[in-house]
Design a protein around this nucleic acid. Structure first.
Length: 150
DNA sequence: GCCAACGTTGGC
DNA sequence: GCCAACGTTGGC
């Protein structure tokens, strides 16, 4: 059982969208490191912190869980999709994803500002300078602490 | 909208 | 293999 953090721009896809949909593909990831985490390390049932980036109040807005094994990202094959990647072939896909299932929306988001000021989160990858990865593991000690703040 | 940080591309 | 140029991410 691992913990993950996954970022989304709420204008694109928010925790409210996931609550409405229940389960959704985490499509459009076009970064190899992030892909590798999804393809090689995620397990069904892993806990996901749902982070809103590029918005007024950035932070963790709720919880989801990994709801499928990894499979090829179909949007990479779709010419009409904005995440289309002609290099990804059906017989040899470049991009993979997992499904995520809504678990919980926090009553109050745990803001980035709050986390930055929290001594117990020193070293958490989210807070590292220049971190732009949209999918990455969250060590248990940080995960447990974040959950204690909810 | 700005811009620092980072990942990718491509010429050499 | 190096590295400059470019595109993207994401906080502010």
């Amino acid at each position: 059982m691992h913990y993950w953090l996954m970022k989304s721009e709420p204008d694109e896809y928010s925790i409210d969208d996931l609550e409405r949909d229940g389960v959704e593909m985490w499509d459009g990831v076009r970064n190899y490191q992030a892909r590798n985490f999804m393809r090689d390390e995620m397990k069904v049932g892993d806990t996901v912190f749902f982070y809103h980036s590029n918005t007024k109040r950035v932070g963790i807005y709720g919880l989801a869980e990994v709801a499928s094994r990894p499979y090829p990202d179909p949007t990479a094959f779709d010419k009409n999709d904005k995440h289309f990647d002609p290099r990804s072939k059906r017989e040899d896909p470049t991009w993979y994803l997992v499904d995520v299932r809504f678990k919980q929306k926090f009553e109050h988001p745990i803001t980035l500002e709050q986390m930055k000021q929290d001594k117990k989160l020193e070293g958490f990858r989210l807070l590292a300078k220049g971190n732009r990865l949209s999918v990455f593991p969250t060590e248990e000690r940080y995960a447990k602490h974040i959950l204690s703040l909810v």
